[in-house]
Simulated scan of single mutants.
Amino acid sequence: MKTTPDQAAVVWRKSSYSNGGDANCVEIADGFPGTVPVRDSKNPEGPVLLLPAAAWSGFIGGVKDGRLG
């Protein structure tokens, strides 16, 4: 099972929760069971955060219901 993204092989997509502005450019990658790789699209060669899928789901839930803005 692959858990660490190979930067050359990962297909990144902009999160649907990014509003498209210059200050909100979060990209995520699929295909890593149990883990969600997250990066800043303005710095594609920079660090990647590897979040547990449950933590990402909790974060997205907080954004959706307005607890996180």
Score class of each variant (00 low, 15 high):
1 M>W: 12
1 M>L: 07
2 K>Q: 14
3 T>I: 14
3 T>P: 00
4 T>D: 11
4 T>N: 08
5 P>S: 14
5 P>T: 14
5 P>M: 04
5 P>R: 04
7 Q>D: 11
7 Q>V: 06
7 Q>A: 12
7 Q>I: 14
8 A>F: 07
8 A>V: 11
8 A>M: 09
9 A>V: 10
9 A>N: 03
10 V>D: 03
11 V>I: 13
11 V>Q: 15
11 V>W: 11
12 W>Y: 12
12 W>I: 08
13 R>S: 11
13 R>W: 03
14 K>H: 08
15 S>M: 08
16 S>C: 01
18 S>E: 04
18 S>K: 08
19 N>L: 15
19 N>V: 09
19 N>Y: 07
20 G>W: 02
20 G>F: 13
20 G>P: 00
21 G>D: 13
21 G>T: 15
22 D>G: 12
22 D>K: 03
22 D>Q: 08
23 A>P: 01
23 A>G: 02
24 N>H: 12
24 N>E: 09
25 C>N: 04
27 E>P: 10
28 I>Y: 02
28 I>H: 00
29 A>D: 04
32 F>C: 03
32 F>A: 10
33 P>L: 08
33 P>S: 04
35 T>P: 13
35 T>F: 03
36 V>C: 02
36 V>Q: 00
36 V>A: 05
36 V>L: 13
36 V>K: 08
37 P>I: 05
37 P>T: 12
37 P>A: 05
37 P>E: 03
38 V>I: 14
39 R>H: 10
39 R>P: 03
41 S>M: 11
42 K>M: 12
42 K>V: 02
43 N>G: 02
43 N>W: 07
44 P>I: 10
44 P>Y: 00
45 E>F: 12
46 G>Y: 15
46 G>R: 02
46 G>C: 09
46 G>P: 02
47 P>K: 12
47 P>S: 13
47 P>N: 10
47 P>D: 11
48 V>I: 15
49 L>Q: 06
49 L>G: 01
50 L>V: 02
50 L>M: 13
50 L>I: 01
50 L>Q: 07
52 P>D: 13
52 P>A: 14
53 A>F: 06
54 A>Q: 02
54 A>V: 08
55 A>I: 04
57 S>F: 14
57 S>K: 15
57 S>G: 12
58 G>N: 07
59 F>L: 07
59 F>N: 01
60 I>N: 06
60 I>E: 06
61 G>F: 05
61 G>P: 05
61 G>W: 13
61 G>L: 06
62 G>R: 07
63 V>S: 12
63 V>Y: 11
63 V>E: 09
64 K>D: 00
64 K>Y: 09
65 D>I: 07
66 G>S: 05
66 G>Q: 01
67 R>E: 15
67 R>G: 06
68 L>F: 15
68 L>Y: 12
69 G>A: 15
69 G>N: 14
69 G>T: 14
